[in-house]
Amino acid sequence: MPLLPEHLLAGHDTFMAGRYAQEQSRYRSLAHEGQAPETLMIACCDSRAAPETIFDAAPGELFVIRNVANLVPPYQPDSDFHGTSAAIEFAVVGLGVRNIVILGHGRCGGIKAALAKDDEPLSEADFIGRWMSLVDEPAHGVKTMEHMTAGERQTALERISIRYSVANLRTFPYVAEREGRGELSIYGAWFDISTGELWAMDGETGDFRRPAVDRPPSAGG
């Protein structure tokens, strides 16, 4: 048996001959000087929605947290294990990021699970069900919208959950303090896997708009 799956080894060979060769000095600088990303991206672990690919990010540009359905739990300092909260703490307090983006996406399996609470859990532990209980309240409300199709309900909850995560993010004291001082900005975004289209959340209204279409004209006209 190989040390790693063959397609991963082949991919690494391509990486070394391509991107690493082109950006070797950047990688070496990051190794010696450490990382200093300006943006924390909280995204879903779905293999189809990789932030580095969606935003064409360079090495060291994004600090990425990925979990099921790109959720942020409320601030809850206790003796449990909090992987997402630990990474937020490191990004904000340790690295001093200036932006946080909650990135959702279409056809999210976690959101689908939240809307199908009566389905059999994948395992006896039901880690997914427990995690997705973070959005039980909006999920219940969306499920009552009988005039919407299943696809419309899913898209609605995908976007509503982003607003919930933004609200939970602000329960972290060091996030709220830095945002209040103008040192940190918080954003929400939603990516359509099928079209590649990106929607961004309006910070004032909560509406989702397409930056490629709705962004204000540049100063140069």
Rank of each mutant, 00 (worst) to 15 (best):
H7A: 10
R163S: 14
N67E: 13
A200S: 12
G180N: 05
G203L: 11
E137F: 10
S123F: 13
P211D: 05
A167S: 15
D207V: 11
L8A: 04
A167R: 15
G34K: 01
G11I: 10
L103Y: 01
S123C: 15
W199M: 09
E38G: 15
R107N: 07
R163F: 11
G129C: 11
R26M: 12
R130K: 15
S133N: 02
D118H: 10
R210A: 09
A69N: 01
L3G: 03
A125Q: 08
E204I: 11
E23I: 08
A43G: 05
T39E: 06
M201V: 01
A156H: 13
A116D: 09
I100F: 14
L169M: 01
A21V: 07
L169D: 02
L9H: 05
M16R: 15
E158M: 12
I54C: 00
A176P: 03
M201G: 02
G221F: 03
V92H: 09
N99F: 07
A113E: 00
S218F: 12
A43S: 07
G129H: 07
R26G: 09
V142R: 00
G182D: 02
R159F: 11
S185M: 14
Q154Y: 09
V101N: 03
S47A: 13
P217T: 15
L184W: 04
G96L: 11
I193E: 12
A189Y: 00
Y174A: 06
V135S: 00
S85V: 05
D13A: 15
H82W: 02
F81C: 03
L71I: 09
A150E: 10
R26Y: 04
A212H: 05
H140F: 14
L198S: 02
L103N: 04
R107I: 01
R153Q: 02
K143W: 04
R163Q: 14
G203E: 08
A69D: 08
T39W: 07
L3A: 13
C45G: 06
Q22R: 15
L95D: 03
A116L: 13
I160L: 14
D136M: 04
K112W: 14
T53D: 02
V142E: 00
R66C: 03
A87M: 12
N99I: 08
L9M: 15
H105V: 02
G182R: 01
A58H: 10
R170T: 12
L103Q: 05
R19T: 12
W199F: 13
L198F: 00
S161P: 07
